[in-house]
Structures are given as structure tokens and as C-alpha cells.
Design a protein around this nucleic acid. Structure first.
Length: 593
RNA sequence: GGGGGUGUAGCUCAGUUGGUUAGAGCGAUCGCCUGUCACGCGAUAGGUCGCGGGUUCGAGUCCCGUCACUCCCGCCA
């Protein structure tokens, strides 16, 4: 009990009948019957119906009160008659007969109603985030976030992990995302960077002998936003372990995520044990390294078909000759789908900037036949071969895309989602986790044609050092892995390279001289030279986990105070200009455009 | 940096082929109403149709430009 309340707005029941109570909260909703006024009083915990009659001296004032005014109400708990009980409400057995009230916080006319399930523009929601956050759905999302984080913390500690904080002001790193930069007053002309992740620190913690580390770590990357990617900051469950191999990390994370998703959701798992898919296989079957495994459609390579003489689909044949590839998606039993189904997919494909989505449907009369716009170009023998490769059967349809490899992969990946969506093949009530493993250490830069790190340069290459084929770096895989759930990349991690000599060699392949590496990663390399344990870790994205648990498609729905797409905080007016004096202290001047 | 979508009352939206005075619901204000829980009924106020330019006898509607929000591509080791 405080000055403001004896109970919260969700705890009173018929057991409290007759008690004099004090409640405080927001005036959620009024129902004014002229001589009888109902007020729903809301706080963090729930709502309670309060009531007063015309003869009450406060009637006029409360009747006119702006919704969302914060009031303190004193009154008597009164059992409702049977007919007037509200079963939807936890406190629906009772109501408060108001004796007196007090305004604690007045409220102006609202720019957006709190009591409503309607959707509002992001702009107004973000500007008045404190009002938006009073609304039921997002309010409970944020509470869920808090609960999930506490649970994760408990579980990690139970498993012997130790939580540490790492610096927020650190140094800019040359690899990876664009850094947020902070000027240094004491070191004119020099800058801090906000950490993109505590990557080097967590490795240093291992070198320092702490064995098992975790942190709910803020990470900052100055990159453009997406629905599942806030500009500015996001949170990772940062984990690092000493004396482990890949499988040891998998065990810890798989157990944790299973527990979290089972505790906070009723959705079922597609696979109890997370399947492991190599990067190569994922790119072939799904066209992406973050496949949605709820989607049963798979992609097949059918390039060889278009090298046959009995296939006369000249456009594809020619493209294949000049190095393009063809990938296909089979849809089961779509023979009787209306023409519009196929036409709409083709239209969609064109809107994606491709030349369209070729298709036919397999039929059988005397022999195998293909019906549809391009069916006539395929001989019966060729169709048999296609069926062999793709597993397609009579009555199924096959969709084709032909282009340069990277274009086909990307397009077929979205075509897979699109087609499955049209056919309603995705079970929304399921979580489909998987590990993506065996990432290549290097890739060829599309623009420069040079070899570069494809992911984290600190990852350990797979295999014995002496057996590594440094002359063919594209053949080297790394102990690098991702967790994907329902097509959302949840985390990536790696076994780290803790051997400085090997590291120099790997950097050299990517075009870094020894002196470059020493300059850029001095602290790290130095530390690894003084007895570093083998170690590895991972960093699941907290925001995306909550998103999946809350069933939201947008990360702002699980973030208290997010920025908009242009990385502005409309409520706090950030970023903003700073004074001449501040600039001067920082030895900065602004270049006028 | 590029592409798509959206922008009309405080909020959510409708607005036909370019044609008279731009509408509805919620909210606000006023009035009526003693059992509602999306209370009901009646009335009133509320608009630079994002902004600028153009075409036209006439533009919310068509064209050009621009701004804002959003989704996507690039980017995100």
C-alpha cells in the first residue's frame, strides 16, 4: 500500500467485496449513461470498472474528464449482479463505487487514441511513443521482452556462464559494417567508434581466462534499416566459451533456444533437433543462407536440360551457352490451378525486375507432355529427365528461372517464398530452426574480382593447418555458423582463430600485409601471442528472438524507443545539431554544403 | 545511392471518367439517457486534399518536380 493505491487495477475480486480501496491509473474508457457513469481505470496490471451515479458530487467533473488522465480513486468494492459480470476481465466480478477522486496527471487532447486496436502511422506512433506504449499489444510485447531477457540471463548463469560488460567507446574496426563515430575531446582529431559487437573484447575475455562469458550486449551499426533491422542499436546475447569445438557451442545454444521458445510460445517445433545444412546446400536448395524451412518447396538445378538438342526453348538454351544457369521449383498437384495463378506469378516475377517466370504443368496422355506457354519446347524424354532431377510427377507444375548464378539464387529464393505464400504452404504455427554450417572462409569480390573474407576474418579454418590449400582459398571452409528460424537469421558465430601465425597467413590471402594486420588488430594479435585458449562463440539477436516469439514482422514492435528508417528519434529529436561551443571543444567544424 | 507503396479532418480511411458546397467512423464540444463493458441517441465544430509548379473553362483526381513515412535492393565481416 502506498499513498496512491491499496491495490493495482487487476487484483480485486468478489473476495474484496465491501472493502474501501484506493486505486490509481489512467482513465481508459468512459461509458456515460447520463445518470450513471462507468469508468475503466487502467494500470500496468489490468483494468477495473469504476462507477458513480448522478447524485455524486464528482459526477459532472468525471463525466467531462479527458481520457488518459491519471486519477486516484477512493471507493468501495462492490460485487456485481450476475447479469453484469464481465468474464473477459480479471476484475469483472466487481466494480468500485467511487467516493472521491483526485487528478494526479492531467491529459491534453490525444494525438492518437490509446483505447483502440486500430493501426496508426509509424510517424505518429514514434513521436508519441509513450502513448503508443500504453496500448495493449505493444505494452505486452515489451513486457515479454523483459521476461525473455531475465529468463535467458538465469539460464546462462545456471549453465556456468559469467556476465560482463564491455566498453561502449572503443576503436573503429576496418572490417564489417559502418561504425558510429564519437569524437574525442581529449584527443583532438581522434575518434572512438561504438562497438558493432563486442567481438574482440569477448575473445580477450577468453584470453584472460574467464572461460565462459555472456552479455546482453548492445551493438551499433550505422547501416540502412530493414523491417527486421533497426538503424542504430540492437541487442545480442553475446556468448563466448573456451576449450570448445563447434558442437559444444551448438549444444549450449540449441538447449537455450529450445527452452526459451517453449517457455514463451505454444507454437510447435518442426524439428526438435535443429538440422544442420551446409552453406552450399542451402544456397542450392533454397537460394539463400537463411531458408524458411516451414516452406516445403525446394529448388533444383536443371541447367543440363537446356543443353539437350530435344529442348528447343531457345532463349534459355542461348543463355545457358553463355554461362547462365537454370533453377526450378516444383509445386505439387497444381494442374487445376486457374490460369490467373500462373499469370500472377509471372507478373510478380516481372515486377521483381526479372524477365518472368517460365512454367509448365506435367501431364500424361500416351506420353509425358508439358502444358503451358513453354511446354511445347520440351520433348517427352527431356520431361522424364526433369522429373528425375526434380522429383516432379504428373499433375505438378514446374517454374523456371534462367540468369547468371547470383541473380537466379536471389530471385528463386524470393520466388520460393512467394509461391509458397500463394499456395498457403507455410504453417504459421511452427518454428523451424536450423543451423547453417561450413561457410566458406573467402569469396570473390563481385566488383574487384579479388579474394576477400566472406564473413568473420577471425574464424578458424576447417581442417589441419598443414592440409589447408592456401593456393585455392575458395576451397577453405571456416568453423563459422548461423542459426536460422523461419527464415530469420537469428545469430552467427564461429570457432575463433587463436593462432597469430595462421591469422597472418589468412589475412595475407585477403590482401593484408603483416604490418596492416598488426596495425589494425594490434591488441587482439598481441593478446593471442601470450597463451590463448582455443575458443568460440555465437551471438543470437535478442530483438529478432522476441519478434519471433511475439509473432511480429517488424522489430519496432518489440523495441521500446526505436528510431525511424532515417535513424531519427522523433520523440527525443535525435540526432540534433550541437552548439558552436561543443564543436569547438571537440576541435570539429561542420562543412557547409 | 536505386526501385515500389502511401500521404485527404486530431486519428483511421472513402472520394467514380477531371465537374456544383470534399464525405464516413472514431475522437472533441453541446444536449438526452441508471447497467454499460466497442454503451446508445441527437446536434455542432473541425480541411492550404504533404509542398511547389504545370495542363485545363475547371484538378483531391492528370503531368513534372520536391518532401515525409514505409517496404525492398545496395549495405549489414
Amino acid at each position: 500500500m502506498t499513498k496512491y493505491r491499496t491495490h493495482n487495477c487487476s487484483e480485486l475480486t468478489s473476495k474484496n467485496n465491501g472493502e474501501i480501496v484506493i486505486l490509481s491509473g489512467w482513465m481508459h474508457k468512459k461509458r456515460d449513461h447520463g445518470n450513471l457513469l462507468f469508468i475503466d481505470l487502467r494500470d500496468n496490471y489490468g483494468t477495473t470498472q469504476c462507477i458513480l451515479e448522478k447524485n455524486n458530487s464528482f459526477f459532472k467533473e468525471l463525466e467531462k474528464m479527458q481520457l488518459e488522465t491519471v486519477i486516484k480513486v477512493t471507493g468501495v468494492v462492490s460485487k456485481r449482479t450476475k447479469e453484469t459480470i464481465n468474464k473477459e476481465l480479471k476484475t469483472g466480478e466487481i466494480e468500485i463505487k467511487i467516493n472521491s477522486f483526485e487528478i494526479l496527471g492531467a491529459c491534453k487532447e490525444l494525438p492518437l487514441p490509446v483505447f483502440s486496436d486500430q493501426e496508426y502511422s509509424e510517424e505518429i506512433r514514434l513521436k508519441y511513443r509513450f502513448l503508443d506504449l500504453r496500448r495493449k499489444k505493444i505494452h505486452s510485447n515489451i513486457l515479454l521482452r523483459s521476461k525473455v531477457i531475465s529468463f535467458i540471463r538465469e539460464e546462462m548463469i545456471k549453465s556456468g556462464f559469467v556476465e560482463f560488460q564491455t566498453p561502449i567507446l572503443t576503436s573503429s574496426s576496418p572490417e564489417g559494417a559502418r561504425d558510429f563515430i564519437v569524437p574525442s575531446r581529449l584527443n583532438p582529431g581522434k575518434f572512438y567508434a561504438l562497438p558493432q559487437a563486442p567481438q574482440q573484447f569477448k575473445q580477450l575475455i577468453m584470453v584472460s581466462g574467464f572461460d565462459k562469458y555472456f552479455q546482453i550486449a548492445p551493438c551499433f551499426r550505422d547501416e540502412d534499416a530493414r523491417a527486421d533491422r533497426s538503424p542504430g542499436e540492437f541487442y545480442q546475447l553475446d556468448i563466448e566459451m573456451s576449450f570448445v569445438e563447434q558442437e559444444d557451442v551448438f549444444k549450449v545454444v540449441e538447449k537455450l533456444l529450445s527452452k526459451v521458445f517453449k517457455k514463451f510460445s505454444n507454437k510447435k517445433f518442426l524439428n526438435e533437433k535443429f538440422p544442420k545444412i551446409s552453406f552450399k546446400e542451402a544456397m542450392l536448395k533454397y537460394g539463400t543462407d537463411k531458408p524458411d524451412l516451414r516452406n516445403p518447396l525446394e529448388i533444383n538445378d536443371v541447367t543440363s536440360i537446356f543443353k539437350r538438342d530435344d529442348v528447343t526453348f531457345q532463349i534459355f538454351n542461348k543463355l545457358v551457352k553463355s554461362g547462365s544457369i537454370v533453377r526450378a521449383i516444383v509445386t505439387k498437384s497444381t494442374k487445376n490451378k486457374p490460369r490467373s495463378f500462373f499469370d500472377n506469378l509471372d507478373k510478380w516475377a516481372k515486377s521483381e525486375g526479372t524477365s518472368g517466370l517460365a512454367y509448365f504443368t506435367l501431364e500424361k496422355n500416351k506420353d509425358f507432355e508439358a502444358t503451358g506457354p513453354v511446354g511445347k519446347f520440351f520433348s517427352s524424354e527431356a520431361l522424364k529427365e526433369i522429373m528425375k532431377i526434380t522429383g516432379a510427377e504428373v499433375g505438378d507444375s514446374i517454374f523456371f528461372s534462367c540468369d547468371k548464378e547470383s541473380n537466379v539464387l536471389q530471385f528463386m529464393s524470393s520466388a520460393r517464398d512467394k509461391i509458397a505464400g500463394e499456395l498457403n504452404l507455410i504453417d504459421q504455427n511452427t518454428y523451424a530452426f536450423c543451423w547453417i554450417i561450413d561457410y566458406p572462409m573467402y569469396e570473390t569480390d563481385k566488383i574487384t574480382g579479388k579474394i576477400k573474407f566472406s564473413h568473420n576474418p577471425f574464424s578458424m579454418p576447417q581442417g589441419e593447418e598443414k592440409n589447408l590449400d592456401f593456393k585455392n582459398p575458395l576451397t577453405i571452409n571456416a568453423y563459422q555458423y548461423d542459426i536460422v528460424c523461419n527464415g530469420v537469421e537469428l545469430s552467427s558465430g564461429a570457432i575463433r582463430n587463436h593462432k597469430p601465425k595462421l591469422m597472418y597467413k589468412l589475412f595475407e590471402i585477403a590482401g593484408y600485409k603483416k604490418s596492416d594486420v598488426e596495425e589494425k588488430f594490434k591488441g587482439m594479435i598481441n593478446a593471442l601471442s601470450f597463451g590463448a585458449p582455443p575458443h568460440g562463440g555465437i551471438a543470437p539477436g535478442i530483438d529478432r528472438i522476441i519478434m519471433l516469439l511475439a509473432g511480429e514482422k517488424n522489430i519496432r514492435e518489440v523495441t521500446l524507443f526505436p528510431m525511424n528508417q532515417n535513424a531519427q528519434d522523433l520523440m527525443m529529436n535525435a540526432p540534433s545539431e550541437i552548439s558552436e561551443n561543443q564543436l569547438k571543444e571537440l576541435s570539429l567544424s561542420i562543412k557547409k554544403k
